[in-house]
Design a protein around this nucleic acid. Structure first.
Length: 288
DNA sequence: CTTGGGTCCTGTGCGC
DNA sequence: TGCGCACAGGACCCAA
């Protein structure tokens, strides 16, 4: 479930449970995800206190009082399940529903000193975890070249124009490049391009200042709206679950091939084609 | 350097 | 009902 809004939603679910808590038990059920767990991972996590759960791009960062940061990338199917002791009158959090895959893909489980249990599931195992000295995060290969956070001031039209300049690659592909802007994935790139009226096929170098300004505004808007909605939940996960994300109901183009464009006054039909092996959805009528 | 394609892994949904 | 195939939110690696 992981583009920026989904990762941010997960962060907001984990922070109240892990922030300020001490990890008292770690059960690592396999040696690797996409990559091997770091050497001594469970032992190094056990006994640590989590200062805060943060996010950078699509990475979750749990900073520890040991001087290390526990880093998680959810890949395509990584999920966290939080279970807490029953608290009278408390409504369950967004992530307290049963994991759809069952226990089969529960690769890591930990308990806190407050009695909460946090389990990581990942059917496809495209996710990965690391334990990195906090002082070295910025220079670590996972983070060194990542671009600005789209919801922070460093992401502006001048930055985009600089990244686009002279590039013949399609603007959609360039926006997916985490070095250009952090946290965008296939869904929100399609959505932002549609809002801005920019064709995903347009060579990045041919995006002018006006379109770059619109893209900055619309990337921000779509991400902010998605965060408020708790992210998007794909079909396999959309079970009886008032707790999953809701933004999939607000998609203008993603997953809407053959359906009418929702832009007022546009009579176009949403089309789909492949770019770099991934589906792009757009309206050929109002995106140029 | 840029760009396109293949790859990791498993599950689901669709057409036949 | 079963089977094969296409496709899935990411990102790395390599070849041209």
């Amino acid at each position: 479930m992981p583009e920026l809004p989904e990762v941010e939603t997960v962060r907001r679910g984990l922070q109240p449970v892990l922030g300020g808590a001490r990890v008292v038990r770690v059960e690592q059920r396999r040696p690797d995800l996409r990559f091997p767990f770091p050497y001594g991972f469970a032992q190094r996590l056990t006994g640590a206190r989590v200062d805060a759960v943060l996010r950078r791009a699509k990475y979750l960062l749990a900073s520890l009082d040991t001087g290390e940061t526990w880093v998680t990338h959810l890949g395509m199917t990584g999920r966290f399940l939080v279970e807490r002791p029953e608290v009278q009158g408390e409504s369950p959090g967004r992530f307290t529903h049963a994991a759809p895959e069952g226990a089969k893909h529960a690769h890591l489980a930990l308990e806190t000193d407050a009695g909460a249990r946090v389990t990581f599931f990942d059917a496809r195992r495209f996710g990965y975890m690391g334990l990195i000295p906090t002082a070295e995060l910025g220079s670590h290969p996972w983070f060194a070249e990542i671009g600005p956070e789209p919801l922070e001031p460093g992401f502006d039209a001048a930055h985009l124009l600089g990244a686009f300049k002279g590039r013949s690659q399609a603007v959609k592909t360039v926006l997916l490049d985490q070095r250009v802007v952090a946290g965008l994935g296939n869904i929100y790139v399609c959505e932002a391009l549609h809002r801005s009226g920019v064709s995903p096929r347009r060579p990045a170098g041919k995006v002018g200042r006006a379109a770059a300004l619109r893209l900055v505004k619309d990337v921000r808007a779509v991400l902010e709206e998605a965060i408020i909605a708790g992210g998007s939940t794909l079909r396999d996960y959309a079970q009886a679950d008032g707790l999953s994300g809701l933004f999939q109901h607000s998609w203008a183009v993603y997953g809407r091939e053959g359906e009418p464009c929702i832009r007022p006054g546009c009579a176009g039909t949403v089309a789909r084609f492949a770019q770099g092996g991934r589906s792009t959805f757009f309206c050929p009528r109002c995106q140029r």
